[in-house]
Nucleic acid binder design. Structure first.
Lengths: 228, 228
DNA sequence: GAGCTTGAAAATGTATCCAATCCTCGTTTA
DNA sequence: TAAACGAGGATTGGATACATTTTCAAGCTC
């Protein structure tokens, strides 16, 4: 008997043992900016930093490499992934096509309680919070609009796209002018309203425009990508 | 001239690190069907199969897990990734949105020589080749249409999506009826013609329809996903 | 003095060994 | 008789140690 189909781990998404913890910690450190793009990562340093051997560190690096947050070169080392202007625009182009789909799939699954949290988040962002707080609110707002989809594949993809551009969102938030900032607030409010009135087409359209206008903003600040 | 390029007869390419070779070999084995979805993968078996220790095998498994081809459960083992009908449809929905974009980005970069290879490939697929040969031609045809994009991010994403659904494309090719087969050939020809006449909008539309019709085909054969 | 060569140091990749965890199967008990 | 419990076996995860590769810098040649 070849007992292969023992158990179907389709619902199991857990990352492996303690390497998963290291991967989570390192991911958080990269997203928080503690490790900057282009910075070299030495396995030994991480091993000491997280109190483990180099082996789970390598596993974690491989996992993050697959997420697009780390670049590994054989026999050479690992670096925090760095996006060129063109690559960043590419990510945003993918987001323009993918996130409206995820939003559409999510909307039927959003309950009233979840929807009631949308506009308060928009209001909170209007209070001109600090950069890190704004990034957190922005992410929470969009992820909330996606929370109705039990999608695993598309949801993970979108999360990866957000993570790879996290550093650049921070940079652009830092030098954001008031006008673009107000535009973002309006787009967020329009998105929330479209969701509240159960208008999938409108929501898709607004979200596409939101991401698209952000992408166009990238071209106006190429200096963010030049300073290596 | 910094010339250390002199190597012994066994000139190993830059793809050093046997973990990479194992990952490539295992990926090929999964895509070829040698390992079926849902099948358990034991590290020791792979270590012997590829003549290495369990350690590079673990690295390879992690790499493939990140690509979505393998599922790893802590302290338990690894399985070849298996898609449910819903997940497979989700992948196709993502492909519907993403591949037309990649095609649009690719078209300006397609030179005359590359375009001349499109219709012959369509013809070759019309000759009712064996399943494996058809899968190869189909993949080559589509990848050729994408070869004009120097895109790294989007190209890798599309390749991953193709890989995760490779097994199910094989299954559906096996039970394909003549009518659906002819439809596929027509869609391929329309796609090639749209590219040859430099019609990005038309090409996007045809490709979207092509993927979409394939996705709808999935619902008609749920038994492919049940027998697992 | 400039550029190439060479050698040492450091970082990565791999192998072997040991600990922790999970599955299987036999035993026991209600 | 069936279900729950526990011990044994098997498999994975991690740590230490070693081989390989790369890089950097000092020294030598031209």
């Amino acid at each position: 008997m070849t007992g292969h189909e023992d158990r179907s781990p389709t619902t199991v998404e857990k990352t492996a043992g303690s390497a998963g913890r290291i991967a989570d910690a390192l991911r958080a450190d990269i997203l928080s900016g503690a490790f900057a793009p282009g910075e070299r990562i030495r396995q030994e340093v991480l091993a000491e930093r997280y109190g483990a051997s180099r082996l789970p560190v390598r596993d974690a690096l491989r996992a993050l490499e697959a997420e697009g947050l780390v670049i590994m070169v054989p026999n050479t080392g690992a670096w925090v992934a760095k996006l060129s202007l063109e690559e960043c625009q590419e990510v945003y182009q993918v987001r323009e096509r993918v996130e409206p789909l995820l939003l559409r799939m999510s909307m039927p699954g959003l309950d009233a309680e979840t929807r009631d949290r949308l506009l308060p988040l928009v209001e909170a962002m209007r209070q001109e919070p600090q950069v890190e707080e704004f990034l957190r609110l922005d992410r929470e707002f969009h992820m909330l609009t996606y929370s109705g989809a039990e999608s695993t594949i598309l949801g993970d993809l979108v999360e990866r796209l957000w993570n790879t551009t996290q550093h650049y969102r921070r940079a652009f938030t830092l030098l954001g002018t008031e006008r673009t900032s107000r535009t973002v607030h309006l787009e967020h409010e329009m998105l929330a309203l479209a969701i509240l009135r159960d208008d999938p087409d409108g929501a898709e359209r607004v979200l596409l425009g939101h991401i698209s206008s952000t992408r166009l903003e990238l071209s106006r600040h190429p200096e963010v990508f030049h300073r290596l």
